[in-house]
Every structure is written in C-alpha cells, then in structure tokens.
Design a protein around this nucleic acid. Sequence first.
DNA 1: ATGACTGCAAACTCTTTGCACAACA
DNA 2: TGTTGTGCAAAGAGTTTGCAGTCAT
Lengths: 146, 146
Amino acid sequence: MATTADERLATALRARGHRMTSQRLVLHRVLTELGRHAKAEEIARASAQRLPGLSLPTVYATLELLEELGLVRRLATGGGPVLFEARGKPHAHAICRRCGTTTDLAIDAEEDDALAVAGATGFVADHAQLLIWGLCERCAAQAAAA
Amino acid sequence: MATTADERLATALRARGHRMTSQRLVLHRVLTELGRHAKAEEIARASAQRLPGLSLPTVYATLELLEELGLVRRLATGGGPVLFEARGKPHAHAICRRCGTTTDLAIDAEEDDALAVAGATGFVADHAQLLIWGLCERCAAQAAAA
DNA sequence: ATGACTGCAAACTCTTTGCACAACA
DNA sequence: TGTTGTGCAAAGAGTTTGCAGTCAT
C-alpha cells in the first residue's frame, strides 16, 4: 500500500464533506507516528510542539471526528482518562485494575464472529475490542507482599 | 450450587479479612438481583431505598471492593459513567458510540486463550471482556437520514 | 476496645459547551 | 463569501479524598 497516512486522512475527510485543517493533519500524524495508545492530554502536548496554540477542546473534537472516520480507536479503561490510538493491526489490551497501566497484547480476537453476532441484532458494528483485566506484574507483587 | 449470593459475599469478605456491613450486603444484593449493568448512581438510588442514608462515596468504595473480590465487573464505555454488573455468565457488550447505550450480547469470547497470553507476560489476568463498538439501530438510522 | 467502615462536604480530573474570531473551499 | 472549524473561558459530570463519628468483631 503506497497510501500515506496523510492521504488516508484527506480522503476520509473529503468523503464526509469535512475540511482539511492543520490541526487535523498534525493530530493524525502525531497519533500515527506514536504507534501506541495515549491520553488526550499527551496527544495535545506532543501536537502543540508542532502547532503552538492548539487547544484541548480542538483535540477532543478532532479525536472524535477521527474516530468516526475510522482512523482512530477509543480505549476506555474505566478509571482515569480515555486513551486513543491510531487504527493499526488488531490487538488486545491488558489493564491493571490497581494502577491503570494499559499494555498491548498480541491477540487478534475473533472480531469477525463478534461483529456478525452484533450485526444480527440491528447494531451496526464497527470493531471489536478485547480487554483483559487484572493486575500488572508490579502491582501483583505488591499485593502479594501485603 | 446451593450457595446464595449473600453467602458468597460473606465468604469472600472473610477470606480477605474484611468486615460484613449492611451497606455491602445491600449493594451486592441489589446488583445481583438487578441482573444487568448499571451506573453507580442508579445502584446507589436503588440501594438507598433499602438503606436510607447510603452515600455515593460508600457505593464507589464498595463496588471497588466487590470488584477486587471477583463478585462484580466494571464496564468502561468511554464517554459517560462506568457501569458495574454482578459476575454472571460471560457475555459481550455492544456500545453505541453516539448515544452510549450498552447492550448485552450472547457471545462468550475465548477468555481462556486471552488470559493465557496475558499471563505469559507476567500480567495476573483476571477476566477478559469483549466490547463491540458501533452505532445502535436507532442512531444508525438517524445517521443515515442526515 | 480497637481498628475498619461510613457519611458528609469539598476538591479534583477529565471532558464538553457557548460564543466570537479565523480560515478553508 | 459562506460556512465550518478553532480558541478561549467557563461549566459540567463523575469520581475521589480528608476527616470525624460509628459500628463490626
């Protein structure tokens, strides 16, 4: 695939009648280059280095738009901020209930099965996400000590 | 299994050196009898009918404890409040990105595989949770109309 | 009797909203 | 040129924290 991330963004925006702006370009690039999940505030900080004056409300609005365009995924971990990541190869996430740390896992869940079942109920499924809950190595050790 | 929910709670509390209180008993009962996911505030309201004066901080503290005891699961849907549900037979959740409605789906993901992979990384996995993102029937119809 | 648990109030974090200005098409 | 998008400030929802009093064991 010779399509660059920038081109994918431009195409997706056009297709839905949205405009291209420097904020959208930079935010999408930052998230793509980052290659992992991050909080809105981290993304904002990284992006503001390239685009001074970038505001948090714009970051949230843009991430929501990118999510609707299917370029970004939202990862709700339950305690603390929502995480965002550029859409890449499917993987699961391990979330520590104690400290909230979220780690990628090399599992590609059977998204297809899941999406089919969801679709049968009238739900327009988009993608499946597998979360593993528990304690990270560090917190498990602490819990055992106590 | 002839074990009642109350007994499971009592046993789990004892095993970890926690005390039995009326708040914990009522909250666990309410969530068990409810049989579906609910926000902390809904749970608090339902429980306060049986136990006037019950406070929100206590509800949150208790739900967290019940989660650690493995009696309750937390369901983060990303925008809006966290949902809680009594641990029952495994199922997936479909979350509408537009309106936030969360519906149960009769899928039991391959938790075992997932837990094994997570465990191999040093993570002490507890349970797996499959989320399906997309638009519910109602919101999909609205989006199509616009 | 003693330590864990609860309620109250306040604080805190994360996210969204309203409105005036700027900038893409 | 007409919207769509952005920044700023402020509000809002949900959740957590600190502390004094209460209750289980």
